[in-house]
């Protein structure tokens, strides 16, 4: 399976609160909340780190089998990307998120 790359959209404002990431889309003023595991994926979505590597980080931090973590991460990406706040590509994504994962 070819690897995928994910990147945060630049059209958002995000802030960590209580272990969960709160994200506001400036496009349609939709407010998103990610749980702790989803937040780890979000913070690692720099456009340069392949999803498989992000999943490896999940496996090292959480009690989960690699196969389960990969399947869940792919599902999460597939669910969130249509909302436009997470970009997905088969190739590294450049300059999609020049600022940090947590922005004002």
């Amino acid at each position: 399976m070819s690897d995928r790359y994910i990147a945060r959209s630049s059209a958002i404002a995000a802030r960590m609160l209580g272990g969960e990431m709160m994200i506001m889309s400036s496009v349609d003023s939709t407010f998103y909340t990610l749980n702790e595991v989803a937040t780890v994926i979000w913070q690692a979505a720099d456009g340069r780190t392949p999803l498989s590597e992000i999943v490896s980080a999940l496996v090292s931090q959480f009690e989960v089998e690699p196969e389960v973590a990969l399947r869940d991460a792919q599902q999460f990406v597939d669910d969130l990307s249509p909302h436009g706040i997470l970009l997905v590509s088969d190739h590294p994504i450049a300059d999609s998120s020049p600022r940090s994962a947590e922005t004002a």
């Binding site: 349609d28 939709t30 407010f31 749980n35 931090q61 389960v68």
Partner: peptide
Amino acid sequence: AKKPYRKPEFRFEKVFETLL
């Protein structure tokens, strides 16, 4: 020690409608 795993999920709501 590793932390308990929960499936990565998100929820969302339209702010305009919430600001009901």
